[in-house]
Computed example of a mutant assay.
Amino acid sequence: MYQGRVHRVAEDGNAAIDGADRLVGHVRVLCDRFRALTGIQRPGRHRVNRPGRLPRWPLWLAGLLAGCGGEMSILDTAGSAARQQFWVWWAMLAVAVAVSLGVYALWFYTFCRREPASRTPREERRIMLRWVLGGGVALPVVSIVALLVFAAPTGRGMLPFPEGEAERIEVIGHQWWWEVRYPGEGEEREVVTANRLVMPAGEPVDFHLTSDDVIHAFWIPRLGGKRDMVPGRDSIVRLEADSPGVFGAQCAEYCGAQHTHMLLHVEALERDAFDAWLAERRSSPELQPGFDQAREAFGEHCAACHTVAGFPDELVVDDLEHDIRGPDLSDVGSRPSLGAGVLPMEEGAIAYWLQHHQTLKPGNRMPPHHHIDTETLHEIGAWLETLEP
């Protein structure tokens, strides 16, 4: 009985294999017929239907080269640190391409070579150890050491060594906006702004970085550097702009739902223009006459979270229990954008932001203003637009 079952299982297995072979054979026949049929009916179809078709590689090349410029491109350098990183990037790319080509060449060689002569187990072991030690140990070690030697000066150039004086600018990351502070010396008033960074050109600047909530990352691609901003920890990076200009900056560490809407507008000015920009904001602010109702509404609904230099303390109504800290609005009328790059600053933009900020930037910590009538919001916006040095 046992032998009968074995023979029956073997016959069933052979039948299944034969059936699979027949199925594969039918599929091959159908594919061959289909190829022959399409070849007879449409010979050279791409030539007949699309005469003079232009090649697509110029479009691909143009798209590739488009990434070499722009305010967020590391290849369009505008500072010494960025240039050093530029050459490190090209060196890493060259090594990666060389290693990839070598691997592809060996891969093709294994398919194209003839059958090697028989080897003894000892010879096989020697060849295996040669590849393991050479390709798996020696090559990575040599590559990493060479990269460290080549890139170490780049990292050192971004450290705030006491070689000459450097301007100090403090940058604090929030969800999802930037706070920028310019400390005063002696009795000078500290300048505080938001989502706009102005720096002197042609000289080093030490950026003191930290975060108020989660981990952010400070990154000005054209000037170099990408430094994490960790809550409770102060880190410093030294950057320099070669000449005056406007640069884009972006939070480079995912920090929540509105991470992509955390842009920083960076301007590099000549030293005289930078000193004049600071002096305007250090001077004692004077609020323009009028807008009394707007100021009262601001003190009641906004002053608990936002600060305006020179705003009367008696108008501030702060009887709410909260821990929300909003941007300083002392010079909001002179800023290029609202909401860290969400809206361009233009007439009526602040009122529009106050009405629709949770739609424009969902999840931001400013509560909705449904309890405030539209006319009052427009009055507040019109007054805030006048806040310029």
Rank of each mutant, 00 (worst) to 15 (best):
M128N: 07
M128K: 07
M128F: 14
L129D: 03
R130A: 15
W131R: 14
W131G: 04
W131N: 08
W131L: 15
V132M: 12
V132W: 10
G135D: 10
G136V: 11
V137Q: 06
V137N: 08
A138V: 15
A138E: 07
L139A: 15
L139R: 07
V141P: 05
V142Y: 11
V145Y: 08
L148N: 11
V149S: 05
V149E: 05
F150W: 08
F150T: 09
F150R: 05
A151D: 11
P153C: 14
T154E: 15
R156I: 07
M158D: 03
E163Y: 06
G164M: 07
E165L: 13
A166D: 10
R168Y: 00
I169R: 02
I169T: 04
E170F: 00
H174C: 12
H174A: 01
H174W: 13
W177I: 03
W178N: 01
W178L: 03
R181H: 11
R181Y: 01
Y182Q: 00
Y182M: 05
Y182F: 12
Y182P: 14
G186K: 04
G186A: 06
R189M: 13
E190R: 07
E190H: 08
E190Q: 11
V191Q: 12
V191E: 10
V192A: 07
A194I: 01
N195I: 03
L197N: 07
L197A: 10
V198F: 00
V198C: 01
M199S: 08
E203S: 06
E203F: 00
V205N: 04
D206W: 03
F207W: 07
H208C: 01
L209S: 05
T210K: 01
S211N: 12
D212W: 09
V214I: 01
I215V: 15
W219H: 15
I220Y: 13
I220S: 13
R222Q: 14
G224H: 09
G224F: 03
G225A: 06
D228I: 04
M229R: 10
G232I: 05
G232D: 05
R233W: 08
R233L: 14
I236L: 09
V237K: 09
A241G: 13
D242E: 03
S243R: 14
P244T: 02
G245Y: 01
V246E: 12
V246Q: 01
G248L: 13
A249P: 12
A249D: 10
C251Y: 05
A252F: 11
Q258I: 00
H261C: 04
H261P: 00
M262R: 03
M262W: 02
H265E: 14
L269Y: 13
E270I: 01
R271H: 15
D275F: 00
